[in-house]
Amino acid sequence: MTSVLPAHIRFRRASVIPGFGITFGYTLLYLSLIVLLPLAALVVRASSVGIDGIVAATLEPRVLGALKISFGISFIAAIVASVFGLLVAWVLTRYHFPGRAVIDAMVDLPFALPTAVAGIALVALYAPNGWIGALFAPFGIKIAYTPLGIFVALVFIGLPFTVRTVQPLIADIERELEEASATLGASRFRTLWSVLLPPLLPAILTGFALAFARAVGEYGSVIFIAGNIPYVSEIAPLLIVIKLAEFDYTGATVIATIMLAISFSTLLVINLIQAWARRRFGNA
């Protein structure tokens, strides 16, 4: 169709394989109908209240409180998930012990288990009369129905992301690096810290960002354990649901748009980290 045009102007390179038109067209149509147009409608609706309206709705104390709780606890939970994710990935890749394959498969559980099921299971464990909650209750520490409960749920949700982004890179580490470091007289700790850790850093950051992004939007596993007290343990996604139930469509739309903007920024940061890693270490 475009054979007369020079190569650099052509939209696509010529190929003997058929079916480009129909598959590409269908992809664009389906993508637009299901994803792009509905998301655009959300943004259009939010912008219809104007900048002042958006700012006013955001600065409403309850909204501000919910955003702080969502982003603050997600950030801490993603850090903890990253630290333990690194340890778990290292242990699963480097060490051999009985039950390793089963544990490796189990890491994906938070991803496969429906969030509502995870939510009620975590409450049953961490409530004051639950298996774990009962251990803390004598010390006056409440986990379920407090921000600590939200933290527990978000670590649970984030774990597969932090483990699975680091694991393949640990498996790919060249043994020669460690051997060279050791023969040059470095202690094992120094080898781990200054030879092995730096190339893993982009993956650790990517895992952190993925866990953070997922945690900010998480709903099902959090609402059961959170207690949902405004200003204390009410997360932003729940506030969207509450606003919607009150028919405050504008309020719900504004919170949703802020969350959308932040998750897209996170996505952008992840892409930048990976581009940087490809330049710096030749992997991502």
Partner: peptide, 23 residues
Amino acid sequence: LMTLIDLPFSVSPVVSGLIYVLL
């Protein structure tokens, strides 16, 4: 195009429901 296809993964489930309620 590949980034756009991945987009729904970075949208909160609640927002995913909300966009259809708004429509």
